[in-house]
Design a protein around this nucleic acid. Structure first.
Ligand code: SF4
Ligand code: SF4
Lengths: 141, 141
DNA sequence: ACTAAAGATGCATAATAAATGCATGTTTTG
DNA sequence: CAAAACATGCATTTATTATGCATCTTTAGT
């Protein structure tokens, strides 16, 4: 029961962006340098965030990335929902199971996943971006 | 965010065993025939259940498997805990993350997993073993 | 207009983990 | 002692994830 790295990379990127002074743009390279992760992933993750409207990207020379919304308005739940490919803990149809329809397990697991997601619902990017991160960012330069 | 097939195979096996008349023994082969899954997996899964004391196995000719406890005493939560290799949604140390210690995300995700597990806690094998399954089992022969 | 910076996208490969299969050993009944 | 059935280890396959590479598009600055 793990989340994919894409999901974490999305969080890392958002946290990094949230740690910037207002109006500042950063490049994908900056993010990758900071975390020592692959630009290929970050690039794709950022694209998804741009499409969703969480991040603003400016192409071309002098361009870069910035948050398109206040951190308080970026829900952790939305990010998990976006980047997790499957939220169904068991796929009964994959190895077709003979007792489908007579098994309450699917339902129980489904509500357990709901409980997982519900418990993320109250939190936003602002809750996971401490001022220490901003300091760290400055030290990095 | 999927559970492993081992976990589901454990559930399938337990449900099958719970559907037997009292005192009846079944072989691993029976379980595999019923669900059309691989004996190799089931064999290993059953072993874990035997070690944990949920299933009783008798070796040798005429042997087989049976539940070692009442279905009401087999917690779904315990099964998930046993068969899921990792219950940590993100491993911050894998791609060492620079903001470890300054990131509240781990904690939030941790409590989300707790919520997931907590919501399984009230249920037992008895809750997912309907009488229809027993009927189906009889029809299978 | 040209060039370089920087994002956007697609495809190929590598790494990892899960799932499956095969072979062999051990126990027990008849 | 032979056959049934569990027990265990190892090899192979498959699926998914992660990574890398190549190329295209956009835009600022000269
Ligand atoms: S045992 Fe229940 S949850 Fe598992 S595959 Fe069968 S129907 Fe689905
Ligand atoms: S961003 Fe937070 S949760 Fe993700 S790896 Fe870094 S410290 Fe861990």
């Amino acid at each position: 029961m793990k989340l994919s790295k894409h999901t974490d990379y999305a969080f890392r990127s958002l946290i990094f962006l949230a740690g910037q002074p207002p109006g500042q743009r950063v490049t994908i390279q900056d993010i990758c340098d900071f975390y020592t992760i692959s630009p290929n992933h970050v690039s794709k993750v950022i694209m998804q965030l741009v499409r969703r409207g969480e991040v603003e990207s400016v192409r071309g020379k002098g361009g870069g990335l910035s948050l398109a919304r206040a951190p308080e308005e970026i829900s952790l739940l939305d990010i998990v929902r976006e980047f997790e490919t499957t939220l169904q803990p068991i796929d009964c149809a994959e190895q077709p199971c003979r007792i489908i329809g007579n098994c309450a397990l699917q339902g129980i697991l489904g509500s357990a996943v709901e409980a997982f997601l519900e418990s993320l619902a109250p939190y936003t990017l602002a809750d996971i971006t401490s001022s220490e991160v901003q300091v760290l960012r400055l030290q990095a330069d």
